[in-house]
Protein backbone atom coordinates (compact mmCIF):
# COMPACT_ATOMS: atom_id res chain seq x y z
CA UNK A 1 0.00 0.00 0.00
CA UNK A 2 1.61 3.22 -1.17
CA UNK A 3 1.81 6.29 1.02
CA UNK A 4 1.20 9.63 -0.65
CA UNK A 5 2.90 12.37 1.35
CA UNK A 6 2.94 16.11 0.67
CA UNK A 7 5.83 18.25 1.87
CA UNK A 8 4.35 21.69 2.40
CA UNK A 9 4.79 24.91 4.41
CA UNK A 10 3.01 27.93 3.00
CA UNK A 11 6.09 30.07 3.38
CA UNK A 12 8.93 29.81 0.87
CA UNK A 13 12.56 29.14 1.67
CA UNK A 14 11.96 27.05 4.79
CA UNK A 15 13.41 23.84 3.32
CA UNK A 16 10.63 21.96 1.53
CA UNK A 17 12.72 20.88 -1.44
CA UNK A 18 15.77 20.07 0.69
CA UNK A 19 13.56 18.00 3.00
CA UNK A 20 11.78 16.24 0.11
CA UNK A 21 15.14 15.23 -1.36
CA UNK A 22 16.65 14.19 1.98
CA UNK A 23 13.61 12.22 3.19
CA UNK A 24 13.03 10.62 -0.22
CA UNK A 25 16.66 9.52 -0.35
CA UNK A 26 16.61 8.33 3.27
CA UNK A 27 13.56 6.15 2.60
CA UNK A 28 15.18 4.79 -0.57
CA UNK A 29 18.36 4.08 1.44
CA UNK A 30 16.14 1.97 3.74
CA UNK A 31 15.15 -0.08 0.67
CA UNK A 32 11.77 1.56 0.03
CA UNK A 33 10.68 2.37 -3.52
CA UNK A 34 10.28 6.13 -3.67
CA UNK A 35 9.18 8.74 -6.21
CA UNK A 36 9.49 12.45 -5.50
CA UNK A 37 7.30 14.81 -7.54
CA UNK A 38 8.04 18.48 -8.06
CA UNK A 39 4.78 20.48 -8.09
CA UNK A 40 6.45 23.86 -8.46
CA UNK A 41 5.43 24.49 -12.05
CA UNK A 42 7.54 27.22 -13.61
CA UNK A 43 10.10 27.22 -10.81
CA UNK A 44 11.28 23.64 -10.61
CA UNK A 45 14.25 22.97 -8.36
CA UNK A 46 13.95 19.44 -7.03
CA UNK A 47 15.84 18.24 -10.15
CA UNK A 48 18.71 20.57 -9.26
CA UNK A 49 18.84 19.60 -5.59
CA UNK A 50 18.92 15.93 -6.64
CA UNK A 51 21.61 16.54 -9.26
CA UNK A 52 19.33 15.41 -12.11
CA UNK A 53 18.90 18.76 -13.87
CA UNK A 54 20.65 17.63 -17.04
CA UNK A 55 18.57 14.49 -17.38
CA UNK A 56 15.11 16.08 -17.52
CA UNK A 57 13.35 15.27 -20.79
CA UNK A 58 9.65 15.11 -19.92
CA UNK A 59 7.81 16.51 -16.92
CA UNK A 60 4.60 16.26 -14.89
CA UNK A 61 2.62 18.45 -17.28
CA UNK A 62 3.80 16.43 -20.30
CA UNK A 63 2.40 13.34 -18.58
CA UNK A 64 -0.88 15.06 -17.72
CA UNK A 65 -1.37 16.37 -21.25
CA UNK A 66 -0.48 13.00 -22.75
CA UNK A 67 2.71 14.17 -24.49
CA UNK A 68 4.68 11.54 -22.57
CA UNK A 69 3.89 8.32 -20.73
CA UNK A 70 4.64 8.25 -17.01
CA UNK A 71 7.59 5.78 -17.26
CA UNK A 72 9.21 8.06 -19.87
CA UNK A 73 9.10 11.06 -17.55
CA UNK A 74 10.42 9.31 -14.44
CA UNK A 75 14.14 9.85 -13.82
CA UNK A 76 15.91 7.19 -11.82
CA UNK A 77 18.58 8.47 -9.44
CA UNK A 78 22.10 7.44 -10.46
CA UNK A 79 23.18 6.68 -6.89
CA UNK A 80 20.00 5.15 -5.46
CA UNK A 81 18.15 2.83 -7.80
CA UNK A 82 15.01 2.97 -5.62
CA UNK A 83 14.71 6.75 -5.90
CA UNK A 84 12.85 8.34 -8.81
CA UNK A 85 12.00 11.91 -9.74
CA UNK A 86 9.04 13.29 -11.64
CA UNK A 87 10.14 16.83 -12.50
CA UNK A 88 7.97 19.93 -12.78
CA UNK A 89 7.58 21.81 -16.01
CA UNK A 90 9.53 25.01 -16.64
CA UNK A 91 6.69 26.52 -18.66
CA UNK A 92 4.55 29.11 -17.00
CA UNK A 93 1.33 27.41 -18.03
CA UNK A 94 0.06 26.44 -14.61
CA UNK A 95 -3.45 25.81 -15.91
CA UNK A 96 -2.16 22.61 -17.50
CA UNK A 97 -1.97 21.22 -13.97
CA UNK A 98 -5.54 19.91 -13.72
CA UNK A 99 -7.12 18.16 -10.79
CA UNK A 100 -8.12 15.11 -12.87
CA UNK A 101 -4.69 14.94 -14.46
CA UNK A 102 -2.91 15.03 -11.09
CA UNK A 103 -5.31 12.41 -9.69
CA UNK A 104 -4.52 10.02 -12.59
CA UNK A 105 -0.75 10.44 -12.21
CA UNK A 106 -0.88 9.88 -8.44
CA UNK A 107 -3.11 6.80 -8.86
CA UNK A 108 -0.66 5.31 -11.33
CA UNK A 109 2.32 6.07 -9.08
CA UNK A 110 0.53 4.43 -6.13
CA UNK A 111 0.67 1.10 -7.99
CA UNK A 112 4.42 1.34 -8.65
CA UNK A 113 5.94 2.84 -5.49
CA UNK A 114 5.91 2.51 -1.70
CA UNK A 115 6.20 6.27 -1.22
CA UNK A 116 4.93 9.10 -3.41
CA UNK A 117 6.35 12.35 -2.03
CA UNK A 118 4.91 15.59 -3.41
CA UNK A 119 7.12 18.67 -3.09
CA UNK A 120 4.67 21.57 -2.82
CA UNK A 121 5.37 25.07 -4.11
CA UNK A 122 5.21 27.90 -1.59
CA UNK A 123 1.96 29.80 -1.22
CA UNK A 124 -1.64 28.61 -1.11
CA UNK A 125 -2.41 28.81 -4.83
CA UNK A 126 -3.29 26.06 -7.27
CA UNK A 127 0.09 24.28 -7.29
CA UNK A 128 0.12 24.04 -3.50
CA UNK A 129 -3.49 22.91 -3.17
CA UNK A 130 -3.04 20.29 -5.92
CA UNK A 131 0.15 18.99 -4.30
CA UNK A 132 -1.75 18.32 -1.06
CA UNK A 133 -5.03 17.28 -2.71
CA UNK A 134 -4.45 13.49 -2.74
CA UNK A 135 -2.16 13.20 0.26
CA UNK A 136 -2.60 10.53 2.93
CA UNK A 137 -0.05 12.34 5.10
CA UNK A 138 1.53 15.77 5.22
CA UNK A 139 4.91 16.95 6.39
CA UNK A 140 4.67 20.60 7.39
CA UNK A 141 8.11 22.17 7.21
CA UNK A 142 8.45 25.01 9.70
CA UNK A 143 11.26 27.27 10.85
CA UNK A 144 11.07 28.46 14.48
CA UNK A 145 10.21 31.97 13.30
CA UNK A 146 6.92 33.92 13.43
CA UNK A 147 6.05 34.15 9.74
CA UNK A 148 6.81 30.49 9.09
CA UNK A 149 4.73 29.34 12.07
CA UNK A 150 1.80 31.53 11.02
CA UNK A 151 1.87 30.17 7.46
CA UNK A 152 2.12 26.60 8.76
CA UNK A 153 -1.03 27.20 10.78
CA UNK A 154 -2.77 28.36 7.62
CA UNK A 155 -1.58 25.27 5.71
CA UNK A 156 -2.80 23.00 8.52
CA UNK A 157 -6.24 24.60 8.07
CA UNK A 158 -6.15 23.80 4.34
CA UNK A 159 -5.03 20.21 4.98
CA UNK A 160 -8.07 19.81 7.25
CA UNK A 161 -10.51 21.21 4.70
CA UNK A 162 -9.33 21.12 1.08
CA UNK A 163 -7.90 17.62 0.68
CA UNK A 164 -9.75 14.59 -0.71
CA UNK A 165 -9.38 12.90 2.68
CA UNK A 166 -10.86 15.88 4.53
CA UNK A 167 -13.77 16.09 2.10
CA UNK A 168 -14.52 12.40 2.73
CA UNK A 169 -14.60 13.01 6.47
CA UNK A 170 -11.18 11.42 7.02
CA UNK A 171 -8.02 13.05 8.29
CA UNK A 172 -4.73 13.71 6.59
CA UNK A 173 -2.05 12.48 8.99
CA UNK A 174 0.03 15.57 9.84
CA UNK A 175 3.68 15.72 10.87
CA UNK A 176 5.68 18.76 11.79
CA UNK A 177 9.29 18.97 10.62
CA UNK A 178 11.21 21.81 12.24
CA UNK A 179 14.17 22.89 10.14
CA UNK A 180 17.01 25.40 10.56
CA UNK A 181 16.92 24.97 14.29
CA UNK A 182 19.72 26.42 16.43
CA UNK A 183 19.71 24.62 19.80
CA UNK A 184 22.06 27.19 21.35
CA UNK A 185 19.99 30.19 20.23
CA UNK A 186 16.82 28.52 21.51
CA UNK A 187 18.56 27.86 24.84
CA UNK A 188 19.38 31.58 25.10
CA UNK A 189 15.76 32.53 24.37
CA UNK A 190 16.68 34.09 21.03
CA UNK A 191 14.71 31.54 19.05
CA UNK A 192 11.40 29.91 19.82
CA UNK A 193 11.88 26.53 21.44
CA UNK A 194 10.54 23.31 19.93
CA UNK A 195 7.90 23.14 22.70
CA UNK A 196 6.69 26.66 21.82
CA UNK A 197 6.15 25.74 18.17
CA UNK A 198 4.50 22.43 19.07
CA UNK A 199 2.19 24.11 21.53
CA UNK A 200 1.13 26.74 19.02
CA UNK A 201 0.60 24.37 16.09
CA UNK A 202 -0.51 21.31 18.13
CA UNK A 203 0.82 18.91 15.53
CA UNK A 204 3.00 15.87 16.27
CA UNK A 205 6.70 16.29 15.65
CA UNK A 206 8.42 14.25 12.92
CA UNK A 207 11.88 15.62 13.42
CA UNK A 208 14.16 18.51 14.21
CA UNK A 209 16.75 19.40 11.59
CA UNK A 210 19.56 21.55 12.98
CA UNK A 211 20.92 24.46 10.96
CA UNK A 212 24.03 23.21 9.21
CA UNK A 213 26.46 24.20 6.51
CA UNK A 214 26.14 20.62 5.22
CA UNK A 215 22.69 21.44 3.79
CA UNK A 216 24.06 24.14 1.49
CA UNK A 217 27.00 21.95 0.57
CA UNK A 218 24.62 19.15 -0.39
CA UNK A 219 22.56 21.38 -2.68
CA UNK A 220 25.74 22.87 -4.17
CA UNK A 221 26.83 19.43 -5.33
CA UNK A 222 23.33 18.21 -6.24
CA UNK A 223 22.99 15.48 -3.67
CA UNK A 224 20.50 14.87 -0.85
CA UNK A 225 22.27 15.55 2.44
CA UNK A 226 21.60 11.97 3.56
CA UNK A 227 23.83 10.84 0.67
CA UNK A 228 26.42 13.61 0.53
CA UNK A 229 27.35 13.27 4.21
CA UNK A 230 25.32 10.58 5.91
CA UNK A 231 27.03 11.12 9.26
CA UNK A 232 26.41 14.87 9.42
CA UNK A 233 23.93 16.24 11.96
CA UNK A 234 21.18 17.16 9.43
CA UNK A 235 21.54 13.78 7.67
CA UNK A 236 21.13 11.89 10.94
CA UNK A 237 18.12 14.03 11.77
CA UNK A 238 16.57 13.24 8.37
CA UNK A 239 17.29 9.51 8.79
CA UNK A 240 15.51 9.59 12.16
CA UNK A 241 12.57 11.48 10.63
CA UNK A 242 12.33 8.94 7.79
CA UNK A 243 12.24 6.09 10.30
CA UNK A 244 9.44 7.83 12.23
CA UNK A 245 7.57 8.27 8.96
CA UNK A 246 7.79 4.49 8.50
CA UNK A 247 6.21 4.09 11.91
CA UNK A 248 9.28 3.32 13.98
CA UNK A 249 9.62 4.83 17.43
CA UNK A 250 12.84 6.84 17.52
CA UNK A 251 13.84 9.01 20.50
CA UNK A 252 13.61 12.70 19.62
CA UNK A 253 17.06 14.24 19.86
CA UNK A 254 18.68 17.06 17.95
CA UNK A 255 21.85 15.60 16.47
CA UNK A 256 24.93 17.79 16.69
CA UNK A 257 28.08 17.73 14.61
CA UNK A 258 30.64 15.27 15.91
CA UNK A 259 33.65 17.49 15.99
CA UNK A 260 36.93 16.21 17.22
CA UNK A 261 38.72 18.12 19.94
CA UNK A 262 41.10 19.49 17.31
CA UNK A 263 38.22 20.94 15.27
CA UNK A 264 36.59 22.34 18.36
CA UNK A 265 39.74 24.15 19.32
CA UNK A 266 40.96 25.26 15.93
CA UNK A 267 37.89 26.04 13.91
CA UNK A 268 35.37 24.28 11.86
CA UNK A 269 37.37 22.89 8.96
CA UNK A 270 40.59 21.11 9.76
CA UNK A 271 40.66 18.95 6.65
Amino acid sequence: MAHVVVVTSGKGGVGKTTSTAALGAALAQHGEKVVVIDFDVGLRNLDLVLGAERRVVFDLINVITGVAKLPQALIRDKRLENLHLLPASQTRDKDALTEDGVAKVIDELRTKFDWVICDSPAGIERGATLAMRHADAAIIVTNPEVSSVRDSDRIIGLLDSKTVKAENGERVEKHLLITRYHPSRAARGEMMAIEDVLEILSTPLLGIIPESEEVLRASNIGSPVTLSNALSAPARAYFDAARRLRGEVVPMIVPSENKGIFNKLFGRKAA
Binding site: V146, R150, G189, E190, M191, M192, A193, I200
Partner: peptide, 10 residues
Protein backbone atom coordinates in the same frame (compact mmCIF):
# COMPACT_ATOMS: atom_id res chain seq x y z
CA UNK B 1 15.01 37.06 25.14
CA UNK B 2 12.82 37.80 22.14
CA UNK B 3 11.49 34.24 21.76
CA UNK B 4 8.75 34.68 24.43
CA UNK B 5 7.54 37.80 22.58
CA UNK B 6 7.35 35.82 19.34
CA UNK B 7 5.38 33.10 21.05
CA UNK B 8 2.90 35.50 22.62
CA UNK B 9 2.35 37.46 19.41
CA UNK B 10 1.70 34.24 17.52
Amino acid sequence: GSAPIARERL
